[in-house]
Simulated assay, not measured.
Amino acid sequence: MKTRIIGAIIALVLTVVGAFFLISYVRNADARAQQGAELADVYVVTKEIPSGTPGESVGDFVKLDTAPKKNIPENAVTELSELDGLVADGKVLVGEQLLQAQFVDPAVKASRGDVDVPAGMQEVSFALPVQRMVGGAVRAGSQIGLVVTKYEVGADIKDGTPTFVPETQFSFNNVLVTNAQIGENVSDGDSSEEETSGDTILLTVALATHDAERLVWAMEGYEQQGDYIPYVGIWATLQNDATDTSGSAPVNEINFR
């Protein structure tokens, strides 16, 4: 019995010693391989970068490491600021080196009809006549604003009696368009074939939950006008990163100039 215990202890010791020498050999081999090799900084992905991630946010997904210069591709990112204004063209997996080729201009990505929905948002579609859609200039990847005219409690401009008056104001800004297409109408004649109509644009946009609810509510009023007309109309504007909406204010028959 004692012989077996002693044998087990010896085997365990030999295993530990063997593992120690193996690890030391591997480390020494790495050191020998890098001896004389010119090292350079490289960014390595530590957390998967989702497609569409802005370059300005990449710092949360990578760490700065070093590697032999000969093993670093020519288009490797050396400064994270190189990615400002760009977005990830696809997923970048853990362990990959960060490369400039993995990022593109958002407009290029959008031109392929490939617009990523930001995290936490959802898509919703609505259609408006082309004259309310910047003449059809809106494209996938565009940023739009939505100006809504609705009825508010007010006073008649002539005699001051209480009434509902139309009021116009920006209700949405910097809305990301994920898809845009010409609307389709079904012919009311003998033919059952669908006809393409150039007077309607169907947009799909990405919105946060409550904003999606607000847009649907506005469209319900616009499309179902009747005795009670909560909305007179909705218009889209084409915006960009430099658009200034700080001057937005409700416009009605009293303050319209």
Rank of each mutant, 00 (worst) to 15 (best):
D89C: 05
K91D: 08
V92E: 08
L93Y: 14
V94K: 14
P106G: 05
K109E: 05
V117S: 09
V117Q: 09
G120F: 08
S125H: 06
S125D: 13
F126S: 05
V130Y: 02
V130D: 03
V130C: 00
R132F: 04
V138K: 02
S142G: 10
L146A: 10
V147H: 02
V148C: 00
V148D: 00
Y151I: 01
Y151R: 12
E152G: 07
G154Q: 02
G154R: 03
K158G: 09
T161M: 07
E167D: 10
E167Q: 15
T168F: 01
S171P: 04
F172S: 02
N173M: 02
N174M: 09
V175N: 01
L176P: 03
L176A: 06
A180D: 08
Q181G: 11
Q181L: 07
E184S: 12
E184V: 13
D190F: 15
S191N: 14
T196S: 11
D199L: 09
D199S: 15
T200S: 02
I201L: 15
L202I: 12
L202P: 07
L203N: 04
T204D: 10
V205L: 03
V205P: 01
V205R: 04
A208H: 12
T209C: 03
L215F: 02
V216K: 14
V216S: 11
V216Y: 05
G221R: 02
Y222H: 08
Y222A: 06
E223F: 09
Q225S: 12
Q225W: 06
